[in-house]
Design a protein around this nucleic acid. Structure first.
Length: 1058
RNA sequence: GGGCCCGUAGCUUAGCAUGGUUGGAGCGCACGGCUGAUAACCGUGAGGUCACGCGUUCGAAUCGCGUCGGGCCCA
């Protein structure tokens, strides 16, 4: 049996019950197993990093995924949906270090790498568990029982296998490169891990003495004085013009000769506070090539003595500062590239801890570079080589985890030669379907076009160890692809593949030497890069990949363009030579209501838990899905969240409204089926059925193009506009019919059909609410029905129910009803009071309203509706408007009188006279130009416009209409009192009504039976005195109230029938 | 500094690829109405430099260029 539902929508209660129902009955597993014969849909979850707390963006991400997967499942797809967790890397190391109070890598070594790794693992696993709970609260259905985890041995093997493939394909390379380096974490960090913000740094102009030209200097500028000790060259632009300038301060005799880009001469000299100057000569940058200079601190840094310092040409030089760039190939990316191309020595006298090494000379050794800036500056100044010194605020990179300013140093690292694959990648992504299109065709394309080799090594602990072993004797290298291979090759058995266990494994080199693993671990981005095959347990499991790979669909935020979309593509190109996904939906970010990014420091962060506790998961889900196109950023708004909640509440009210009547009438949907009621459907029933099926088609279309906002907005519109605002209003009187009327049953069957359909359409988006409705309406009446709405098939639009013409007609009815309501308001006639006539006067062709005249009449509360032909109007009154300008000159002094007379005259007669050419009014001969005739709407009519015409409402009250009006006023008040007494819908009452006004009493008396039946009164008495009520006063369960109805006072008394 | 995206009422937004009669909604506000969905529901009204500027065009929210603001990414 269907149960009655009391009270407003209570998300907490609904969701709690549903979650328990799902858990107790294993509904999720059933959805995934029941479709085993269906088409395959391989979804790869972009693994969130195990931070312990989800935020609104990750919530949105999983909600999108869940809605799509639920939809796909209902459409008979068998789905692969392992949830994923990204669990390695520096963020967790840093957290554990903080927890243990560590300051540097040495602390870790002292503590013990094995213990440290255990802590990291423990930490990651507990964070994962916490987050799983949070995602589950949202109703996100992924395979949480068996997620892929980047810290599992089988996962590590997927990464190992991939690297082995890279090596086989000659795409793995060891190289000395300049990398972003965190001197605290003592590791290379990826470009993506560099966070930029403003930092104040020194800004210095330095004079490099030119060899063999006395008192002549190359001018350079830098914000990193600490890199000067590593300087080996200067770059100038081949197309710029440079000047040799003779400049002096006080004494022209003590002038110096400086080489500066011509347009920058004045600004540089201003920096150096020179008083005057003369230009000696000008020349192109190419003429400077090869010019030699002396390192400014050569006396302090012995290693610099053996380096030949020269001028080089480079296109990256900009016309800023001095127009010449100081080149330290050990400390800059461009510097390094130029250095390699020009065969400069790659001099990097800075260690991994960010301190100068012995190569920097006795004075600097052991000093932390960023703190050495001042010392370098003063050393330059002492030698008279510091032209100017100041401060500059600019954006500088920092380690994303520990916030330490990064430095660039040249170190040996391992690289994947992605740049070799650039063109193949471009070809592959063109084959991928992108939503929106520009995510692939513009954004991702641009990114790949600039693809550089990928530095995959990190000098850390908590990560996938690089499976590279190198012979200490001959330098031979070997890449191991799996645990099994390692055991076989080494003759030992490793317990797990993490450090430090794997570090202890040595291999025998064919040369007889011992091979040891390189100490590095993988860049954590490499972990998730192999997710699409690691989630299938490849290479351990050789079967699944054949069945499923590549992924049918992935979706992540737009930051993943250069992140996971890219890393996966790169790894897949290396391994398989094709893209690992067929379609990608790029979604946006969740920003605050002003469009600013949510951040702890601004204090504008909204957490998913907060939203769920206020409004529930379904509201959050529906909100994030409907508020924007998925690829746009959400400007989070509490107001809109409340609005979405309101929509669900209205849906809830619409759902529960008919239940008491259905229960009362023992409505059984398995017996009174839709098909049996077809003949008794009213046009409005056919209309709502048509709308529901049109809606199903709209949602389908939205989902097919991943326009989740279109799907959900169509749903909300249907609920608010069609169902609540319209159909429920139309159907109400029918639920009040007492007998077993086929018309009532047709209404029940229709509501039932619509609500069940709606539950299915809602299931992917608001799964809890949909389930609740479904359980009550379907499962409680039909034990053969699928156990859960999520086990149902998607509702295919029924063509036999869709009637476009009828939908158009109803659209018209609704705008006409609106217009009538507008007219009533103008005419001061409220809806309870019937009107005799509504006239529709279209200004263009409109649909035939024949079918829906009944609806129109009931909703406008009128007795008769007349539809006129296009352009036709009800007869208008004609008003005369005298034209003084014409009357004056003819009648002079009598003009005023003529005007008066005309105003009083019968307009029809005047008009007849004018058209007959002989018009005399009050003795005055009136010519046609003296009067204008204006159309005037008759007093009894009120007009209002609708988009294709006008409606005219006759608001004249007759005795019959008044009687009906008063009757409705009384009925409404009695109903109000029934409610106050908390009577059940079907309970009978005794009622007495005292109406003092004799005239009104007479009118109302004519409606006595009607009133009695509407309020379910066994007896109804009416009269002018209080006697009629008094017997009720002391009766138990009675209520007596005074009312004023349109200024007529009444007393109404009711009591429970005996 | 570069690439991509976004900027429409107080708030959230439709319309923009195929330019064309007064730019639609919802929330909020004011007024009114309905009511056995009742702490719900409906109507009317006020509220818009379509971020700004220039251009293309008979005509621009819509197309182009530039500026400003926001987001992601890069330097």
């Amino acid at each position: 049996m269907i149960s009655e539902v009391a009270g407003q929508y209570n998300a907490k209660e609904v969701e709690g019950k549903v979650r328990k129902f799902w858990d107790d009955n294993g509904i999720y597993i059933k959805t995934r197993t029941m479709r085993s014969g269906g088409r395959k849909f391989f979804f790869v979850d972009g693994p969130p990093y195990t931070t312990g707390r989800i935020h609104l963006g990750t919530a949105w991400n999983k909600i999108i995924k869940d809605s799509i997967l639920r939809f796909k499942s209902m459409n008979d797809f068998v789905i692969k949906d392992r949830a994923g967790w990204d669990m390695h890397g520096l963020p967790i190391e840093v957290k554990v270090e903080e927890h243990l109070g560590f300051k540097s890598k040495k602390d870790i070594e002292t503590y013990g790498v094995d213990r440290f790794i255990d802590k990291c693992k423990e930490f990651a696993l507990s964070q994962k568990d916490q987050m799983t709970e949070q995602f589950r609260t949202l109703g996100a259905w992924l395979n949480w029982e068996d997620p892929y985890m980047t810290l599992k041995d089988e996962y590590l093997e997927a990464a190992w296998w991939t690297l082995k493939r890279a090596n086989e394909r000659n795409l793995l390379e060891r190289g000395f490169r300049v990398v972003n380096w965190c001197p605290r974490c003592e590791t290379a960090i990826a470009d993506a891990e560099v966070e930029y913000w403003e930092e104040t740094d020194p800004s210095i102009y330095v004079k490099f003495p030119v060899v063999g030209q006395e008192n002549t200097f190359m001018m350079i500028w830098t914000t990193t004085p600490w890199t000067i000790p590593a300087n080996v060259g200067v770059a100038v632009h081949p197309q710029f013009e440079y000047s040799r300038v003779r400049a002096w301060k006080d004494d022209p005799e003590k002038a110096e000769i400086l080489i500066i880009a011509t347009p920058l001469v004045e600004s540089v000299l201003r920096e150096g506070r020179y008083r005057d100057y003369e230009i000696l000569d000008r020349f192109g940058g190419t003429e400077l090539e090869g010019l030699r200079y002396e390192h400014p601190l050569v006396d302090l840094i012995p290693a610099q003595r053996d380096i030949a310092h020269k001028i080089y040409l480079a296109d990256f030089v900009t016309a800023e500062n001095t127009g010449s760039v100081h080149i330290a190939p050990g400390h800059g990316l461009e510097d390094f590239e130029l250095g390699v191309a020009e065969d400069m020595p790659i001099f990097c006298p800075v260690g991994e801890d960010g301190r100068y090494t012995a190569e920097a000379g006795e004075k600097y050794v052991g000093k932390y570079v960023r703190s050495a800036n001042e010392e370098v500056n003063s050393d330059l100044a002492e030698r008279g080589l510091l032209l100017a010194e100041g401060d500059l605020v600019h954006r500088y990179g920092h380690c994303w985890r520990c916030k330490t300013p990064i430095i660039y140093i040249a170190t040996p690292q391992w690289f994947l030669k992605i740049s070799d694959l650039r063109n193949d990648m471009l070809e592959e992504i063109a084959r991928v379907k992108w939503y929106p299109d520009w995510a692939g065709s513009a954004r991702f394309r641009d990114w790949i076009s600039g693809a550089r080799d990928w530095c995959i090594s990190r000098q850390r602990y908590w990560g996938i160890p690089l499976p590279i072993w190198i012979c200490g004797k001959c330098g031979e290298m070997e890449v191991i692809g799996s645990m099994e291979e390692l055991n076989a090759r080494s003759g030992t058995v490793v317990e797990e593949l993490h450090r430090p266990a794997v570090d202890l494994v040595t291999l025998k080199c064919p040369c007889g030497g011992e091979m040891r693993r390189v100490p590095d671990v993988f860049d954590v981005w490499f972990d998730s890069a192999v997710a699409s095959w690691a989630t299938l347990n490849y290479p351990r499991d050789q079967e699944q990949i054949k069945e499923w790979w590549p992924a049918d669909f992935i979706t992540e935020g737009h930051d993943q363009t250069r992140g996971w979309f890219y890393s996966q593509l790169g790894a897949s190109m290396v391994s398989f030579g094709v893209a690992p996904y067929k379609s990608v939906l790029m979604h946006g970010f969740t920003l605050d209501d002003k469009g600013k990014k949510m951040s702890k420091s601004i204090g504008n962060v909204v957490s998913p838990e907060e939203v769920v506790s206020k409004f529930g998961a379904d509201t959050l889900r529906f909100y994030v899905l409907s508020s924007n196109a998925p690829w746009e950023d959400i400007h989070f708004s509490w107001e809109e969240m409340a609005n979405t909640n309101r929509m669900l509440n209205i849906l809830w009210n619409a759902y529960r409204f008919p239940l008491p009547y259905m229960i009362l009438d023992r409505f059984d949907p398995t017996r009174t089926t839709m098909e049996k009621c077809l003949e008794n459907l009213r046009p409005e029933d056919r209309w709502i059925l048509s709308r529901a099926n049109t809606l199903a088609a709209e949602i389908q279309a939205g989902m097919d193009s991943y326009q989740l906002h279109r799907a959900t907005r169509a749903l909300a519109d249907f609920v608010l506009e069609d169902l609540s605002r319209w159909y429920i209003q139309l159907v109400r009187p029918r639920t009040w019919i007492e007998t077993d009327d086929p018309d009532k049953l047709a209404a029940y069957a229709t509501i039932y059909e619509v609500m069940v359909t709606l539950a299915k359409l809602l299931a992917p988006f608001a799964p809890f609410t949909a389930e609740t409705i479904y359980q009550n309406l379907v499962r409680s009446t039909d034990s053969n029905a699928p156990e859960s709405v999520h086990l149902c098939d998607w509702h295919r639009p029924r063509d036999d129910f869709i009637d476009e013409a009828l939908e158009k007609e109803m659209d018209l009815v609704r705008v006409v009803v609106e217009a009538v309501s507008n007219a009533r308001q103008k005419g001061g006639r409220k809806l309870r009071w019937p009107v005799s006539d509504v006239v529709i006067s279209p200004s263009k062709e409109i649909p035939d309203l024949e079918d829906l005249l009944g609806v129109l009449k009931s909703q406008t509360n009128c007795k008769r509706v007349t539809v006129m032909n296009v352009g036709e109007k009800p007869p208008m009154e004609i008003a005369i408007n005298p034209v003084p300008k014409k009357i004056g000159p003819v009648f002079k002094g009598e003009a005023q009188k003529v005007i008066e007379v005309l105003k009083e005259a019968d307009s029809a007669m005047v008009r007849a006279g004018i058209s007959a050419g002989d018009c005399v009014v009050g003795g005055y001969a009136i010519s046609p130009d003296m009067v204008e005739f204006l159309e005037k709407i008759p007093e009894n009519l009120v007009a209002a416009e609708f988009p294709s015409g006008w409606v005219y409402v006759d608001v004249t009250l007759t005795e019959e209409l008044k009687a009906e009006g008063y009757a409705r006023e009384i009925i409404r008040r009695v109903q109000d009192m029934r409610k106050e007494l908390d009577l059940r819908v079907e309970e009978k009452i005794e009622a007495s009504i005292r109406v003092e006004d004799e005239k009104v009493l007479k009118l109302v008396a004519t409606m006595k039976e009607h009133i009695a039946s509407e309020v379910r009164a066994k007896h109804l008495d009416m009269g002018p005195t209080l006697d009629i009520i008094s017997w009720l006063e002391n009766l138990e369960g009675s209520l007596v109230k005074d009312w004023s109805v349109e200024d007529v006072s009444m007393t109404i008394g009711i009591s429970r029938g005996q």
